[in-house]
Design a protein around this nucleic acid. Sequence first.
DNA 1: CGTCGGTTTGAGCGGTTTCAATATAGGTGG
DNA 2: CCACCTATATTGAAACCGCTCAAACCGACG
Lengths: 236, 236
Amino acid sequence: MADQELFSPESNFEVRTIGTHLGCNRATAHPRNVVKFAPQEHVFMQGDAPKGIYKVLRGTVILYRLMADGRRQIQSFVSGGEYLAMTFADRHDVSAEAITPVEILCTPRAMFDRRLQNEAGFRQRILTMMGTKLQSAREQALLLGRKNAMERTASFLLFLDHRFRNPETGYVEIRMSRCDIADYLGLTLETVSRMMNKLKQRGIIDLPQATRFAVCKREQLVSLAGEVDCLEGIAA
Amino acid sequence: MADQELFSPESNFEVRTIGTHLGCNRATAHPRNVVKFAPQEHVFMQGDAPKGIYKVLRGTVILYRLMADGRRQIQSFVSGGEYLAMTFADRHDVSAEAITPVEILCTPRAMFDRRLQNEAGFRQRILTMMGTKLQSAREQALLLGRKNAMERTASFLLFLDHRFRNPETGYVEIRMSRCDIADYLGLTLETVSRMMNKLKQRGIIDLPQATRFAVCKREQLVSLAGEVDCLEGIAA
DNA sequence: CGTCGGTTTGAGCGGTTTCAATATAGGTGG
DNA sequence: CCACCTATATTGAAACCGCTCAAACCGACG
């Protein structure tokens, strides 16, 4: 649903830049603690103390970890309707950065706990969601630990196609850079580019521009991905 | 605590082999649904329908995923006191295999839900635990996606040392094969062996036998691991 | 038309894997 | 207690995949 934001040519709604970090004081200045972020802005950084429970209302955020020398691993994409990093630890273990214009709802921890206690349906949804996120993280671990470059790329394209294909045209708008893809797949951007163009040469995908593709030979792409699951449910 | 089971020379308590799979009918034959498994036995397999919520009372279980051609990625180690794969989906996405003698408590889903509703402390523990598991999975993703063989091995040794060092001797008993380590780190067993022996040669660890080691130069090992976190909290 | 960020493409290198041989430890039976 | 046997671990040599570095290309935008 709201996932589409990542890939639809949604015109950039006006963003009131509030700063790189989300401060509760600032947040409370808005009705219902809704804060907006422009692309490239951080919702929070690795090491920050959580200010509450964050929910993405609109847009897409990436969660990533950095190493001291700059190597980056993107953990997941979080889109509209999903919760961001529901950590109950005292420090965020990941950084969260908007890659589209984003609206974030920040709920105080106490209120979140109250809902968990009082609303069975809410509790169920939250638990299911955490289970799904765990499952996605494991899927990613299999990909990162045991798949080669072509399998990773094929898996990713199938994931994009599954979640973001425009049913009219059959094409997917890729609204992220090769570098972001690479940092998600544990590859370099050059390798991602090579794999995608190899798939194009073989006629398995159509890639008219760097930012658009369509799956032509699904069977072959699935078999190249090495797994049926194809990251389904990632960031879900 | 019960984690020690993996590494203490705990004599094999008598195991009543009940079969490779855990059947609820069998489970109910035992008081409080406790079932025992011998090493190499499966608690459940990828694709099985969950029979309830599993808790490891004693011993250590690995969670892993297999690819069609046999490649394996170990997702986590689950030790005494921890919950196994608290999935709320209709199929297990991973297989669970005992690597030591193990006792598993199987709680019916409905009873688990009831406790979640009625006991705030229980709810809190479960949520915190799922958060911790998610964090571990992300830590592993960084390791698998962005660390080289030496960094992975050093991280793993620090993790073992942190969790399983015998405070008397300073040594850790490694109660798993090089192959299991490799399948956890996304490497081959030969590479794991090479890295460990390179660390031994440099005097960074002592490795009198293949199954025992101690950290000699912690500073250097930490710096080789590339990160401070060192998988802390994995499987926790 | 020129600039700038991002993408593609190429050549060479290096780390990890692969395959194979050897070494070691643990268990069994003589 | 020793010899054997099997598992697992170590070590070596060669191949290969993905990375690094560098150059060319492309599209958007002034």
